[in-house]
Simulated scan of single mutants.
Amino acid sequence: MATGSSGVSRFFGGSPLGVLLRLLLLCVIVGLILDQLDLNAFELFRWMGRVLEDVLHNSAHVLRAIGRYFLIGAVIVIPIWIVLRILRMGSGRA
């Protein structure tokens, strides 16, 4: 067997023709099952798109909320930290 065809067989995990025939049969079986469940491939893609859109929308909402909490907390924390640093420098401890 030539080195090139050995690489192809290794890539496919067996004889390329055998693998393609198994994939064809698997596609038909999965298509039959999806059809019996009244599922459409395009609907599945639309559903995945909606899920991705919801995740991105919710992520943006979460990031906005975290940013808001950060700013609210920073208004209190940063001035207190500055005052404590100034007091520590005055006492000789840094």
Rank of each mutant, 00 (worst) to 15 (best):
A2N: 15
A2D: 15
A2P: 14
T3V: 11
T3C: 10
T3I: 11
G4T: 13
G4Q: 11
S5D: 11
S6L: 08
G7N: 08
G7K: 07
G7S: 07
V8D: 04
R10V: 02
R10W: 08
F11R: 07
F12L: 02
F12E: 00
G13P: 00
G13C: 01
G13Q: 01
G14V: 00
S15R: 05
S15M: 04
P16E: 02
P16T: 01
G18N: 08
V19H: 01
L21W: 04
L21G: 04
R22F: 06
R22D: 09
L23S: 15
L23D: 15
L24F: 09
L25A: 06
L25D: 02
C27Y: 07
C27V: 12
V28P: 00
V28G: 00
V28L: 10
I29E: 03
I29C: 05
V30I: 09
V30C: 05
L32R: 06
I33M: 03
L34E: 00
L34P: 00
Q36K: 09
Q36R: 10
D38R: 10
D38P: 00
L39V: 07
A41E: 06
A41W: 07
F42N: 12
E43L: 12
L44D: 02
F45K: 13
F45H: 09
R46Y: 13
R46A: 13
W47P: 03
M48W: 09
G49A: 11
G49W: 05
G49Y: 03
R50S: 12
L52T: 15
L52N: 15
E53W: 08
E53L: 14
E53Q: 13
D54T: 13
L56Y: 10
L56A: 09
H57M: 11
H57L: 13
H57W: 12
S59H: 11
S59Q: 12
A60N: 14
A60K: 14
H61K: 14
H61E: 14
R64L: 13
R64E: 08
A65N: 06
A65D: 08
G67D: 04
G67T: 05
G67S: 08
R68Q: 14
Y69S: 13
Y69D: 12
F70A: 10
F70G: 08
I72D: 03
G73K: 06
G73F: 04
A74C: 11
A74W: 06
I76P: 00
I76F: 04
V77W: 02
V77C: 09
I78N: 03
P79V: 00
P79M: 00
I80R: 07
I80P: 01
W81D: 12
I82A: 07
I82F: 06
L84D: 08
R85D: 11
R85W: 07
I86G: 00
I86T: 08
L87G: 07
L87S: 10
R88S: 15
M89N: 14
G90M: 13
G92V: 01
A94E: 14
A94R: 15
A94G: 14
